[in-house]
């Protein structure tokens, strides 16, 4: 049986997942096309893992329907298991099995040749560790092993739940490179949950932001920022006490916030036109800058303004 190339990789229809007290996923409907790379962003408890695990067939929706490559999990388990590659938010492998043996174990479920094991092992950079027991791997190495296990069967749909959390910047880059290579062959669909907006914008053209089980924004990075036109940001620490009313009166300044400590944050229409006016006003108040930073609105800022929480909290 082969994949129907016209079917979307994933289609959700009014999916709800309730636990005793919480509604982890609250009435979601969207589709993801084949070959797309999609990031699922959201703070802790947003419902990302629950959603991803329902797509993986490891949890079942309270109501609503999920189609993967046009097929429901009921009755197509065998087929779908072969198309999917996953890495769970947290998996520990068998302590006293080596990296190679672990990969070989999983390869045997798909009946893959030994060459594939070696291929994947070097892909995720664990060649040197082939004889190391999984219990003796570092956290990052363990995550790379988990990714390797997910890649073994050359999946058509890859679902990675926080694959780079806790990794150092170099290892994170390495994983990004592996995923970018997959993107080139246009055969794989990727859904990735993350707390890093940098990761989302680097790897994925589509971003879905979730909170409290709902999608609160989605689109490409540019679309998101354009659609939620929140302006630009000037942040500074002044050398003296500033009269904020005067600053707020400057045309083009939308609002003023106390960011952290002494830091003031101005949300403005356009840095280039507003910044000179701000500097003039500060001169008038005979106040110098201890620090000054101007930047565009980022996904992080967008996230904070949408949810009132930061991504990493």
């Amino acid at each position: 049986m082969d994949i129907d190339s016209s079917a979307p990789a994933i289609a959700l229809h009014s999916v709800i997942k309730k636990f005793k007290e919480v509604t982890a996923v609250n009435d979601l409907s969207f589709t993801i096309g084949q070959g797309e790379f999609v990031a699922l962003l959201g703070p802790n408890g947003a419902g990302k893992t629950t959603l991803v695990e329902m797509i993986e067939g490891l949890q079942f929706p309270t109501s609503g329907e999920i189609f993967v490559f046009g097929k429901n999990w009921k009755g197509h388990q065998h087929f779908l298991h072969r198309q999917l590659g996953i890495s769970l938010q947290e998996t520990r492998f068998i302590d006293k099995l080596t990296v190679y043996e672990t990969l070989n174990l999983f390869a045997s479920f798909y009946n893959l040749p030994v060459e594939r094991i070696n291929q994947v092992m070097s892909m995720v950079g664990l060649d040197e560790k082939r004889k190391t027991y999984t219990v003796n791997l570092s956290g990052g190495q363990r995550q790379r092993l988990a990714l390797g296990v997910g890649l073994l069967n050359n999946p058509r749909l890859l679902l990675l739940d926080e694959p780079t959390t806790g990794l150092d910047p170099t290892s994170r880059r390495e994983i990004w490179n592996i995923l970018m290579d997959l993107k080139k062959n246009e055969r794989t669909t990727l859904i990735l949950t993350t707390h890093y907006m940098e990761e989302a914008s680097f790897l994925c053209e589509r971003i879905i932001i979730m909170d409290h089980g709902k999608v609160i924004a989605k689109g490409t990075l540019d679309e998101l920022l354009a659609h939620h036109n929140k302006g630009e940001i000037i942040e500074f620490i002044a050398g003296c006490t500033v009269n904020t009313d005067q600053l707020a009166a400057i045309p083009g300044v939308r609002s003023i916030h106390r960011a952290s400590g002494d830091k003031l944050r101005l949300i403005v229409d356009n840095i280039i036109t507003v910044l000179p006016l701000v500097m003039q006003e500060m001169d008038k108040q005979m106040c110098g800058f201890m620090s000054l930073e101007c930047r565009k609105f980022t996904l992080d800022d967008l996230f904070v303004s949408l949810t009132g929480r930061t991504l990493n909290d």
């Binding site: 298991h81 769970l88 947290e90 998996t91 520990r92």
Partner: peptide
């Protein structure tokens, strides 16, 4: 260890 669910997500 969540290994069981990882394993049943394969064929």
């Amino acid at each position: 260890k969540k290994l069981l669910r990882r394993m049943v997500a394969t064929p």
